[in-house]
Amino acid sequence: MKCIVALKQIPDLQQLRIRNREPVLNDIPYTLGAIDKNALELGVQLKEELDWEVVVISAGNEELEDTIKEALAGGADNSFLLIDNQIDQMDSAEIASLLAEMIRRSEDIGLAIFGEGSGDNYTGQVGSRVAEILGWPQAGYATSVSVDGSTAKVTRALDDCIEEVELDLPAVIIVSAGLNTPRIPSVMQILKAGKLPKEIITLDDLSLVSSANQIETVSNLAPIAERKQIKIGSVDELLNCLESAGVERR
């Protein structure tokens, strides 16, 4: 049985610089988002428990083959990649249809796991869209997952309650941040990652009719951070200011 983990390569946000309130993306290396790493860790834990195979799928530009080594070092067995520089201009709906088609081409799938949102745009749509396209049951906001035979039991953390649901396999699971602590890959795993099996396709191989991008980005500006310039005259005033800013006393 296979566990698909869908990942998105994003610019390394720790190295991102802001100039004139816009992100400077030149020469910023790509990496995987934090929640995607939670999704991968869940897949690897299920593999260790159930002896499944973990296949990472992803669509991205020409850097993807390199970026995905991070997931392979993190415990995935192989990768199925769609590499095309047009992908960077696509919206969530288009990406979802591409990933759904890639999943359709795989056999014997138990679960397809997604992070609830990517570390860059965080639209939070792709996992649910893929489930709809495939006609598979889905569970979002997953905080714990277990598999028993042909069903998955998922605990969902909702705003006002904790919900437990059972889904027939194959199913889509969309995980929340903090679901687990992703393991740190060892140096040996890193050096072997590039030698693990991979299949690479392009947009032409999928022969999907591209729908027009329905989202227009009007602006993408960093918030302005300004000093508040509050003048205080005593410790009590300082404490009041901190409390009103939401800082809690310990």
Partner: peptide
């Protein structure tokens, strides 16, 4: 990529 991942593992 391998060098930067080794650096990242050590840093993390």
């Amino acid at each position: 990529k391998e060098q930067s991942l080794i650096q990242k593992t050590a840093k993390e």
